[in-house]
Simulated scan of single mutants.
Amino acid sequence: MRLLFVIDYLGAGGAQRQLTSLAVELVRRGHEVDLFVYHDIDHFGDELRAGGVRIFLHRKRRRYSFSPARELRERFREGNYQVALAYLSVPNFYCLVAAAGLRRRPKIVVSERSFPIGGIVGFKKGLLERCYPFADHITTNAHHMREHYRRRYGWGDDRVTTIWNGLDLEKFSAPPLVRAPGEPLKLLCIGRVDRNKAWHLIAEAAGLLKERHGTRFRVSVVGSNKPVLADEFKYREELQAALKRHGLEDSWEFLGARSDIPALFAAHHSLVHPSIVEGLSNVVCESLACGRPVIAADAFDHRQLIQNGETGWLFAPSNVESLADALYRLDRTPPEQLAAMGANARKFAEQHLTVARLADEYEALFERLLSGGPTGAKRDSSPPRESAAVAEAPHDA
């Protein structure tokens, strides 16, 4: 197959990571894959070029511009592509505009990668989504997002499919980390410092446990900590104030953007992920692959990813008491049980989170689109949905 992938830029984001892995794997299988971007940020460029993927860069000059759609339209005319796959709302929009009215065009597949708790999207995202009925197919990387589109448009599996993320399990692996007696648990948080990541919940929960039980943690936050928007400056100040109020400033470290994620997992006991906007979280998947238990909000597809007491714990979203209880349970877990949880996490990743499985499912979808057959997934690679006991508030004793 001759394929064109479309995304805004090649920065170090989760969507960019997934599209890169998929493109390189499909080239390895004998397909031709080109990639179109419209911002000159090139974190994954070398990996893509080394994997045989051609990159077409169009530099978008203004924030609001149709120039990427015009350039894509020329690509569609000249490239003889069979399928175009776009990731994220704005690239999805440009892809659909570029294809509008063309007599000969590729099949258009758009993919959504994140969604807020409660399903209330912003005005801009909601406006862009109004174009999605013109796509040949929609993929999401999480079931809760697929259900949103089913309800909104009345679509079935013939129009919208969930395909979970995939990881390079050779890269994302880590040896067990044994906790020494009396050593504070080392907690890893991955994501930029903004309100949607909800790092303040960890500060408040850690403060409660420090006051009630004398519990101590070492927390590392990995991701951009350079505010750009006004609310990001405000949130950073609020987070620092919470740390100061609970006397936690010396136990938190902001590491900035990093590329050595597997090494960071190797140096920490667990991932804590309170985010309130997600698709299928890459960092949760990476933690499982590296054999590290996960504490995450009981939302999105986390009930399928995380089994309470086996690969981590879930807590009620945005609930400090519930998060504190999950952290308390983690802190009281014996080292041998933590090791067993890590082994369970790695086994889950090997069964459900491989790049080969990701490529299998996209390859099958593209082939069904081109053959004119039904495009619903032949099989659902994710485990069945199960109810999960949410962590309760900690006892004061």
Rank of each mutant, 00 (worst) to 15 (best):
Arg2Trp: 04
Leu4Val: 15
Ile7Lys: 02
Tyr9Trp: 07
Gln16Thr: 00
Ser21Phe: 03
Leu22Lys: 03
Ala23Pro: 03
Glu25Tyr: 05
Leu26Ile: 11
Val27Pro: 01
Val27Ala: 09
Arg28Lys: 05
Leu35Asn: 04
Leu35Phe: 02
Phe36Met: 03
Val37Phe: 09
Tyr38Lys: 01
His39Val: 08
Asp40Lys: 08
Gly45Leu: 00
Leu48Met: 01
Leu48Val: 02
Gly51Arg: 02
Gly52Cys: 12
Arg54Leu: 03
Ile55Leu: 07
Arg63Met: 05
Tyr64Met: 12
Tyr64Phe: 10
Ser65His: 14
Ala69Arg: 02
Glu71Ile: 07
Leu72Arg: 14
Arg73Ser: 11
Arg73Asn: 03
Glu78Ser: 07
Glu78Tyr: 11
Glu78His: 13
Ala84Arg: 02
Ala84Cys: 00
Ala86Ile: 01
Leu88Gln: 15
Val90Ser: 05
Pro91Arg: 10
Ala98Pro: 01
Ala98Leu: 01
Ala99Ile: 14
Leu102Lys: 13
Arg103Gln: 06
Val109Trp: 01
Phe115Met: 11
Gly118Tyr: 02
Gly119Thr: 04
Ala135Lys: 09
Ile138His: 05
His143Asp: 10
Met145Trp: 08
Arg150Gln: 15
Gly154Trp: 06
Gly154Tyr: 06
Ile163Gly: 05
Asn165Lys: 00
Leu169Phe: 10
Ala174Met: 05
Leu177Cys: 02
Arg179Leu: 08
Glu183Gln: 09
Lys186Gly: 08
Leu188His: 06
Arg195Gln: 15
Trp199Met: 04
Ile202Glu: 11
Ile202Cys: 01
Ala203Pro: 09
Glu204Gly: 00
Gly214Asp: 14
Val219Tyr: 11
Ser220Tyr: 15
Gly223Val: 08
Asn225Pro: 04
Ala230Tyr: 15
Phe233Asp: 02
Lys234Arg: 01
Lys234Phe: 13
Lys244Met: 04
Glu249Gln: 10
Asp250Ile: 09
Trp252Arg: 02
Arg258Thr: 12
Ser259Cys: 03
His269Asn: 08
His269Ala: 06
Val272Pro: 01
Pro274Cys: 12
Ile276Thr: 12
Gly279Ala: 15
Asn282Met: 11
Val283Arg: 00
Cys290Met: 02
Cys290Gln: 07
Gly291Lys: 05
Asp298Val: 04
Asp298Lys: 13
Asp301Gln: 14
His302Glu: 10
Ile306Tyr: 11
Gln307Asp: 13
Gln307Lys: 14
Phe315Asp: 07
Pro317Phe: 11
Val320Asp: 11
Leu327Lys: 13
Leu330Met: 09
Pro334His: 13
Gln337Cys: 15
Leu338Arg: 04
Met341His: 08
Ala343Trp: 06
Ala345Glu: 12
Phe348Leu: 09
Gln351Pro: 09
Val355Gln: 05
Ala356Gln: 07
Ala359Ser: 10
Phe366Trp: 10
Phe366Ser: 03
Gly372His: 13
Gly372Ala: 08
Gly373Cys: 12
Gly373Arg: 09
Pro384Glu: 12
Pro384Gly: 10
Ala388Lys: 05
Glu392Lys: 12
His395Gln: 10
Asp396His: 15
Asp396Ala: 14
Ala397His: 12
